[in-house]
Design a protein around this nucleic acid. Sequence first.
DNA 1: TTGATATATGTCAAATATGACATATATTTG
DNA 2: CAAATATATGTCATATTTGACATATATCAA
Lengths: 102, 102
Amino acid sequence: MNSAKKKRLEANGWRVGSTAEFLNLSPEEAAYIELKLALSKALQDLRKSKNLTQVDLAKRIKSSQSRVAKMEAGDASVTMDLMFRSMFALGASRKKVVGMLV
Amino acid sequence: MNSAKKKRLEANGWRVGSTAEFLNLSPEEAAYIELKLALSKALQDLRKSKNLTQVDLAKRIKSSQSRVAKMEAGDASVTMDLMFRSMFALGASRKKVVGMLV
DNA sequence: TTGATATATGTCAAATATGACATATATTTG
DNA sequence: CAAATATATGTCATATTTGACATATATCAA
């Protein structure tokens, strides 16, 4: 894992043991975090492809702009459930959503 | 949606409006719930393919047998995060996991 | 630049998920 | 069959996630 990715994860509030242990992410922890980051990227791409603002999306899912921003930033405080719901709210099919995670 | 699926969802504690509205699931609600159910099934298949008990899996993820049972039952009280983490803890790759959801 | 619009970041009370536990019910094994 | 093992179901105190809000920082057009 390069230092840019490390910084990105730390900045997003991920706490996977101490910073000292950071480079020793177990494979399963790493796979989970990376899938979540892929999901956040997919959500942002999808929203932009629909030419919607974060406020627009927030309204559709009855949430707030700040939470949408956190989803797209891959913040540790948001669940994948909310991200998947958001993508479906943007009209994506399951095939489309899953396809964006491969 | 057939009556068997309706019963299955209700039994799992899903509350998507009243029972009366049940057949009027919005497409995005339906897509989310069905993806989650697919995930619960995938997790169970994966665990069984490794010949592990729910207790075995619970230990690996530092959870409890009852929570594993709920995950596999597609209970509304468990997050997809925990399910994905579980699958990775079972040694599945991202490609494998995502592939089971197509 | 300035103003308008979009996104990011931090905080909090309320809502929801969590592991743990007890215990019920299947399922398997002898 | 009975005992052993596995899974299901319900509850609870604690932990985490939530929408909402304030406010900071971009981004862009006039």
